[in-house]
Simulated scan of single mutants.
Amino acid sequence: MLNIADTLYDWCLEARPFALATVVHVSGSAPLPPGTALAVNAGGDVVGSVSGGCVEGAVYELCTQLLADGGAPVRARFGYSDDAFAVGLTCGGEIDVLVQRVDPSGLPHLVTALEEVRQGRPAAVVQVVDGPKEVIGRTLSVFGGGSAYDGTLGGSREDRVVAAQARALLRVGRTGLAEVGGDADTCPQRLTLLVHTGAPRPRMLIFGAVDFAAALSRAGRFLGYRVTVCDARPVFAQPGRFPEADEVVVEWPHHYLERTETDRRTAVCVLTHDLKFDVPLLRHALGLRVGYVGAMGSRRTHEQRMGALREAGVSADRLARLHSPIGLDLGARTPEETAVSITAEIIAHTNAGTGLPLSQGTGPIHHRARSPRRRLPQTTHPS
């Protein structure tokens, strides 16, 4: 639901009830991941998507019907259909969508969570998507990086267990399913939760204030990163040269990296290809728990750099984490093409993709993690 946080927040401030349709499970080649949502208010306004267009009409009808009759949440399944006039996914996958009515006046914690996300502060909204029917659709929100929570799923013990699960996903900035309960040590009811996380933007740290950095900062900003360009040379590290960067820092790269905040989503891109900058910077970067470390340079530069890093005491395991020369082989020449090459490699690495043309592969296009789930009574559509 956080993909439409801005609009939902506005509706909440206006105390406008709405129907929320959330993707809670996908299998096969489904277009959008769990947590993606569509919402419809009482005036018929719609925001968001659950399928990229394939089944939006049917989901819209479910939403308007639920708003009209005020019924209990309903879970609908949409699968493949080769009938051009049937409701279904043309991509061959399957999605489960939970549709529920939301009255903002009764969920102040949800309003707070939406505001936190809009302001770029960490928050998570936990939604019960499977379990006893009386708790389906209930929500709880976690704030401040997981230090506080509000809302209830039925009891204080359950709430504490659920908040702990949400904190774990919030720490890594990942929306996903979690199973809790079913035993005396946690809570008696077994629940399947969808934890919607709104973490601050991941960071892209670009070292080297060069033309390639300007293009990469534009690409990184487009992909949703908070982009920093850092260079020790003030004549080159000018904010006007990097208008798409969130900040431009004049400092020795390794000193900046030592003092700045990183996490497992951070991408470190070293474009200086100068050993006096590269070696101390990469020695530190390869020891951090960051998502990606890449360094620009020719094959010859790469070999020189690897030798210098070995001499500096960097272990073979850490060197194996280095993407060098940086980027995928796209035949890139210009700074803009090179930026696409680099960001393509970051995306492939982050999502465990092969980097191969889809036309040369087999199997589902979209990689999904499988999660066990119990089944609710469902509305079945052609598949």
Rank of each mutant, 00 (worst) to 15 (best):
G146N: 14
V126F: 04
R310C: 05
G35S: 08
R299Y: 03
G71S: 07
V126T: 13
C187R: 06
L8D: 03
A123M: 05
L275R: 04
D6M: 04
P382G: 03
L376H: 14
H367A: 07
G208F: 02
L281T: 15
D130I: 01
P202W: 00
I342N: 05
R289W: 07
D150A: 15
P108G: 06
R16A: 15
E244M: 11
R321Y: 10
R259A: 08
R221F: 02
E56R: 12
E179T: 15
N3L: 04
R201E: 01
L191S: 04
A5V: 00
A123G: 07
Q378W: 01
Y60H: 13
F277H: 08
Y256R: 11
V126W: 02
F236W: 12
L322C: 13
D263F: 07
E247W: 00
W11D: 07
G287L: 14
L153P: 03
Y9S: 04
A232E: 15
C63G: 01
E56L: 05
E337A: 05
Q65N: 10
V40F: 00
P33T: 11
A199D: 09
G240H: 06
L271F: 14
V180S: 09
A199E: 11
G182Q: 03
A352M: 05
L271Y: 08
F236M: 03
T139R: 14
A68P: 00
P188T: 15
E158Q: 14
A312S: 04
R333P: 01
R333S: 05
F18Y: 13
A148G: 02
A219G: 07
E311I: 02
A344S: 15
V290I: 14
V111T: 15
P239L: 04
T354H: 03
R75K: 11
L358E: 10
G287N: 14
V210D: 03
T379H: 06
R265Q: 12
G71K: 06
R283G: 13
D278G: 04
H323G: 06
G35V: 09
P17S: 06
R289Q: 15
G327L: 06
G71A: 10
S341Q: 13
L170I: 12
R374K: 09
E179R: 12
P280R: 10
V46D: 00
R368Y: 09
R138A: 05
Q127K: 08
L191D: 10
Y60L: 09
F78C: 05
I136D: 01
S324W: 06
S217R: 03
P122K: 01
L281E: 12
L169Y: 04
Q378Y: 02
L358V: 12
G220L: 08
V340P: 13
D10R: 13
L38H: 00
Y60R: 12
L271V: 11
A123W: 00
S49I: 04
A295Q: 08
G48Q: 02
V161L: 06
R157V: 13
G313H: 06
T362W: 06
T64E: 04
Q65W: 00
K133Y: 11
R121S: 00
L288F: 11
R289N: 13
T380W: 07
D96C: 02
G198Y: 02
L110C: 03
V172K: 12
S371Q: 07
G57H: 12
V235F: 07
P335R: 02
L194F: 07
T228S: 15
R289S: 14
T272N: 10
H366W: 01
V180P: 07
G313V: 10
Q360E: 13
F222T: 13
C187F: 08
